[in-house]
Design a protein around this nucleic acid. Structure first.
Lengths: 336, 336
DNA sequence: AGCAGAAATGTTATCGATAACATCCGCTTT
DNA sequence: AAAGCGGATGTTATCGATAACATTTCTGCT
């Protein structure tokens, strides 16, 4: 009826239900000491007025909001972007809003600025998507009393953290190529300051060593198809290269093109395994064998760690590692 | 010195500067009637204490926060994901935090839930990334007194809105193929309920009609490489198809593979133009001619419209259209 | 010098919730 | 029956800012 008027406050509900505003507050917060009958009366009044609590007021008095702050690098890379949307979804399902603080670089001052902005908003918790080593500095910027969970990042920090087991993924990929009969496997890595890159390099190297295979020189690139292409032009000229494991699917795409231009067929002459399983990987030429990361699982795990910290302070700094999965398609065969 | 204590409030600053808290408030909000000398004194006190205003308190009294709510579909598609990060960046640069409300589908009830969550947080404004027709329903869910800007969406609504000129992009793509000498151009569109799709279809059809070319049947797909591949399998069997314009780059990728499998060479036998210019498009086989959208420009335009609405209510419902750009690479040549 | 009017500053009320404490009531316990 | 206790509820203070109004201090002008 009276849509134009100010949205109802707690006192309006109280008046309608014939109780004090504090009792309304108790009902809202599921306080035990409220008679069932009044609880029902209050609930009815809330529904009738379409009352919704004012988060700002609550945040002011409790010093904490229903908002989770995320610190992430501004990126449209498949991995980071997926991570972000999955987390938003998980948080939304749990009734939290997500405030995203994008930074161009994960350096100390950028992180500091974003964290400050989040603390201004009195976020209930922080999630740092710390995919590069420099992000460890973020630790220093975050006061001890606000719940924090890292996604990716350095397990050695001892902080609550969720990661995909990059080492295991790289092992599976490398193993797969060795099992196909290749003498060794070349690796084109991502930027070496990324934890993801480091883990994948480690898994690759370990597997070769354990198999007694020679370890070729490491080739590093950024994550782009462009650098994959440049690296691929070099690899295409080396007949001894028959198996390549790339740190992501886009690198593989660039290499695929370079090989194609040189007339080296995949998988007949060269086998390739990627990482990420981007949706279009199945439609590369040829369809790419790759490693899939369960971003949704990571997001949900991170959220539950965060909620755990928000509930009790007993916060045993749990760390969760999510296993990746090898997706076999057609870019691998035994060597000629 | 006293790091452990509660973070300083306005009164603390006032005491240190020897003024009233209201004067501090005036300095903070750049109120004109403050003597330069006191302004300096207050600023110094702020710096000394490391004071940062409490947004929750401000939001409570003003009824509005420094938070911009975004309603978007949960998606890792290149376009939507880019749009989102670009907007976050623009907002951050302007001192706003961004609360992202992802929804699985842009239907009425999902939108309603997300909008309510945002209003609970007393967002200063809302941005709706309304890439499908059903999002128009969002209009009904948003009260008139909160600033809103649509990104994509129906210009006919009369609401403030920023879009990329999809029609112009499609015209450029189609024109480019016709100019190369092709008799007509086939089009594989995105889902027809997307505004982007509709605009691209329209631009394609118009251009063909104006050129007196025959209009082939429209092929629609989702945005995935998978459907591109399926559609491509069909097109590859039709020798009369020599030119294809796809609604995005991933569709083009799938088609590229299907053509490759059938032995039809690109661009020798078939020419292709995509849309989006995803970073890896230059590394498809062959490098893809495509249409680039300036998401950053769109984001900044949307933000400035929003800020305009927040300042004055004179809100002439401006609409901004950003032109796209044809990126010529190697997937087009004259027909055999 | 005196006074209006503007500029600079201070005081008090207010936003809408939770926290802390006070009160009331009914029931058990001795 | 008085004391004691805990459950249910109400009262008042509080968070930290802005709004509205009140007051003081400068100006410039007659």
């Amino acid at each position: 009826m009276d849509k134009a008027s100010r949205s109802p406050a707690m006192t309006d509900v109280a008046r309608l239900a014939g109780v004090s505003h504090q009792t309304v507050s108790r009902v809202l917060n599921d306080h035990p000491n409220v008679k069932e009958q009044t609880r029902i009366r209050v609930r009815a009044a809330i529904a009738e007025l379409g009352y919704r609590p004012n988060r700002a007021a609550r945040a002011l008095v409790t010093g904490r909001s229903q908002l989770i702050g995320v610190v992430a690098r501004n990126s449209t890379l498949y991995g980071p972007a997926s991570m972000l949307t999955e987390f938003e979804q998980a948080a939304a399902d749990a009734g939290f809003a997500v405030s995203v603080g994008s930074v161009r670089e994960l350096d100390r001052s950028s992180i500091s600025a974003v964290v400050d902005r989040h603390l201004d908003q009195r976020v209930a918790g922080l999630v740092v998507i710390a995919n590069v080593a420099s992000a460890a500095e973020a630790l220093a910027e975050i006061p001890g009393d606000v719940p924090v969970v890292f996604i990716d990042g350095d397990p050695a920090s001892g902080r609550p953290l969720v990661t995909v087991d990059q080492v295991a993924g790289a092992r599976a990929a490398t193993r797969h190529l060795l099992d196909a009969g290749h003498e060794t496997v070349w690796h084109v890595s991502g930027p070496t300051d990324w934890f993801d890159s480091a883990g994948r390099i480690q898994g690759w190297k370990q597997t070769l060593l354990e198999a007694g295979a020679e370890v070729p020189p490491l080739l590093s690139a950024d994550w782009s198809a462009a650098e994959g292409y440049r690296t691929g032009q070099m690899l295409a000229r080396m007949p001894e290269v028959t198996a390549i494991f790339t740190a992501n699917d886009h690198l593989a795409l660039g290499i695929l093109r370079a090989l194609h231009e040189r007339g080296r067929r995949v998988p007949h002459d060269v086998s390739i395994v990627g990482f990420d399983d981007v949706p279009e990987a199945a439609y590369f030429i040829p369809p790419l064998t790759t490693v899939r990361q369960a971003f949704g699982d990571v997001a949900r795990a991170a959220l539950s760690l965060l909620l755990g910290q928000m509930r009790d302070d007993s916060g045993t700094a749990h760390q969760i590692v999510v296993p990746p999965q090898l997706i076999v398609r057609e870019s691998v065969s035994r060597p000629a």
